[in-house]
């Protein structure tokens, strides 16, 4: 599957990574200013932006990769890390810490994280700088009938040893229920 991700990555249009990094950085910094450094609100906004990206991005992802329906949540996570992150960010996160019921796991982003380059966050424990990724995953998974809680538990920007996103599958939505925007 990684090889397929590589092949697709070679054929997609790319932008300069510094342009990408700095654009994202400017968005976060501007949000911090707009919300007067209320970092909870900034996280919410990033999550909402990510959600809106995710519910659209999934279409792009499916058409590019031709991915088929996954049999289990485990397989879904594998597709996310080996194809999803590969195709859009050219990184391949590791999957760790599966819970015994197979409904939650951690995605560990590899270093260097393309979003984090040059960044030193303000001295706070509240801001999750890459929160947009959580929103994207949540939005994209919702569009394929998976209701998943996504949140950060560790971030190297805060001095943690790794950047870790926790995924928790709540339930599989019924097909006929359309996912509405909130």
């Amino acid at each position: 599957m990684s090889k397929k991700g590589d092949d697709i990555w070679k054929n997609v249009d790319k932008i300069n990574s510094e342009l990408f990094t700095l654009t994202y950085g400017s968005i976060v910094a501007q949000l911090c200013r707009d919300f007067n450094h209320n970092y909870h609100e900034v996280n919410n906004q990033l999550d909402q932006m990510g959600y809106n990206i995710g519910i659209r991005l999934i279409e792009e992802f499916l058409s590019r990769t031709g991915a088929q329906r996954c049999q289990s949540f485990k397989e879904t996570v594998e597709v996310i890390t080996k194809l999803g992150f590969r195709v859009f960010l050219n990184i391949q996160p590791a999957v760790e810490n599966w819970s015994s019921d197979g409904r939650s796991c951690s995605i560990v982003l590899p270093e260097p994280n393309p979003l984090n380059e040059f960044v030193e966050i303000p001295p706070t424990k509240d801001l999750w700088y890459c929160q947009i990724l959580c929103g994207i995953l949540r939005g994209a998974l919702q569009m394929i009938q998976l209701d998943v809680d996504v949140n950060f538990v560790k971030d190297t920007l805060k001095g943690d040893d790794k950047t870790e996103i926790r995924l928790k599958l709540n339930k599989i939505l019924k097909d006929e229920v359309p996912a509405g925007e909130d």
Binding site: G25, F118, V119, I121, P122
Partner: peptide, 9 residues
């Protein structure tokens, strides 16, 4: 320059 590239600076 690296310091300047930090979005929070």
């Amino acid at each position: 320059v690296k310091c300047l590239l930090n979005p929070f600076y």
